[in-house]
Nucleic acid binder design. Structure first.
Lengths: 341, 341
DNA sequence: CTAACTTGTGCAATCGATTGCGCAATATAA
DNA sequence: TTATATTGCGCAATCGATTGCACAAGTTAG
């Protein structure tokens, strides 16, 4: 009784019918009678039949696998997005394969290649920092394989994508700092080749202009925006004696670094200097003072990315137009930017 | 020329040989001559041949897929473990499918079932909080499919597993607090059905005994140990007027909650009360004061889990003995437990 | 020089499900 | 009642690679 794996043939044999009929019955094919379907289902249950997805994938060309490519998984933002993706995919009985590019171009290319070989039904990706050539993604598109990008995107690609409105998030944050009294706001950013940082910087500048404040390049510092980068950047500004009364960092980690240095140097936050970050990293609510930041809506972003993906999957690959979704970020005001008259 | 997907048959045709030979040549079979191998490789490159893993999986029974089951991916510990797992798996050209159980028993069972249907070559899992029946894992073992558990394990299962020495981590932490002068240490823990919390509590108690201090059940609070739970627990202790001079929480989040309440109530940390958590969440180094905690070695844990998995995969399923690896945790001493004479 | 291996390849079955086509039986239309 | 549709199901090919077995040619042993 225990021949572990029943196949559709086993079911067919027991029912004196053929595998074709069983297959169609299980897939709820309209040309199979209700009676037959019922029988098949019953026998399938009795034999504890479990479909072999591999066999199905080979013949049908649909593997029910999605490949996800991202820089690294152990960062709050990315793991939250994956959470959202997996949630939706799981409901539709799709499996999610995750791979990491470690911000390495070669690795990203290899990884995409490997996913194609695994015959995933489509790919969801967030582009690595150092990727400037997009042929590997173009290849995916050319093959007619669904591709959706999120957060880190490229305008070079005609592809569906989901991002937050980085410009708006940054604009609102800078606007908020200004309204709290800041006149000279330091901005930490990173390579302007990366869409999100370019947009955030633009948002910052637009807010300044809107309020008639000068846009001073001296106040803008480029780095990788890790904790240490934020510290160094802040130190430099202070040592150079550049006057400032606010810090808006495009990354929470760099904001934290800046805050540490400021506190060490005896600046009072928020009375002397106000601080805001970006990303709503969990730690921002636990610091002292807690850090004003922008919620990137990572879990919804994952869900919407997955939904976009599945719509693409359903649609005719030839005539579908890339969907571009822009989510609204949310400014989270905390103590680091409180007005102190 | 661009018939996108070349198969081994295409290669065979061009070379006037058969698919068998091509297959063997590509797999470096010893019975194929070097000359033939060279030719095949060359033609494969020329045709831009990409193996179809699905077809290979169907015939060979090896899918090169690993299923990973965990409560939720967007928690630092778990995403770090996955990072480690994916690193190793990727090197060996295996793909990692991740699934989340959301600490839900039914979901966990379904998920394991689904992974089996996807014909993964094996499963790596961390058991959900509410799982008390392990039949789904026993089934995996019975089928001879490699299974490795990490962190949240069960003694009911004869299975390979990778954990940290929770007892040691907790013992060292409690020992440290005592040496810093604590005499009455509150302990936050969770369901004692979960191995890690049981072990941590044991470590805490053993340290007390070792130093001749009483083990007072009044000082032990059970909860889910999220931020809010930590707050509530701390409030209760304070309101009940139970005397204490230290807090050792089996979770960093609850430690944070406790710290917030203590500060709100005017307690001085660490001079009046010393605090320690467990897990080395990123935020613990950013709080004020920074929180003493235990590094769970999540990325190495992921790597070792994967390595254990692949050894299991190589070995004869019938005669392999479960491997149990216990990693040494590392106590990270920060300001929240500094001695203040 | 013959028996016994070793080497190098080909044949054909196989993994398990899907699916285009064909056909009989039944239903509907005219 | 006859012509046309519709319904329900089986046949057999197919997806692309793997692999046990057979066998010819070349090697080695005795």
């Amino acid at each position: 009784m225990k021949q572990d794996r029943a196949t559709i043939h086993d079911i067919a044999k027991k029912l004196n019918t053929t595998a074709s009929t069983v297959s169609r019955a299980l897939n709820n094919h309209p040309r199979i009678s209700e009676a037959t379907k019922k029988q098949v289902l019953k026998m399938a249950k009795k034999l504890n039949y479990q479909p072999n997805h591999i066999a199905s994938a080979l013949r049908s060309g649909r593997s029910r696998l999605i490949g996800v490519v991202l820089p690294t998984i152990n960062r709050n933002f990315f793991s939250s997005v994956i959470r959202g993706i997996e949630e939706i995919a799981n409901n539709l009985d799709y499996k999610v394969i995750i791979t990491q590019s470690y911000e390495d171009y070669e690795k990203e290319v290899q990884t995409v290649e490997a996913l194609l070989n695994a015959r995933v039904d489509g790919i969801i990706a967030s582009i690595g920092k150092n990727t400037e050539n997009f042929d590997h993604f173009k290849k995916v598109l050319k093959k007619g394989i669904p591709l959706v990008l999120f957060d880190r995107i490229s305008n070079e690609l005609e592809v569906s994508q989901v991002v937050i409105d980085d410009h708006l998030g940054a604009y609102q944050t800078a606007d908020h700092l200004i309204k709290q009294g800041c006149k000279r706001i330091v901005h930490f950013t990173s390579s302007q080749k990366i869409n999100i940082y370019k947009e955030r910087k633009r948002g910052y500048e637009d807010a300044l202009k809107e309020h008639g404040l000068p846009v001073d390049p001296e106040l803008v510092v480029l780095s990788n925006m890790q904790l240490e980068d934020g510290r160094q950047a802040m130190l430099q500004i202070i040592e150079k004696g550049i006057p400032f009364d606010g810090v808006f960092s495009a990354s929470d980690y760099a904001a934290m670094g800046a805050m540490q240095v400021l506190k060490e140097k005896g600046f009072k936050i928020p009375s002397q200097v106000k601080i805001a970050g970006f990303g709503d990293e969990p730690f921002t609510s636990f610091t002292e003072p807690s850090i004003t930041t922008v919620d990137q809506k990572s879990i919804p972003m994952g869900r919407i990315t997955a939904e976009t993906f599945f719509e693409l999957l359903k649609s005719d690959p030839k005539q579908s137009v890339p969907q571009r979704t822009i989510l609204k970020p949310e400014l989270i005001i905390r103590d680091s930017s409180k007005k102190t008259k």
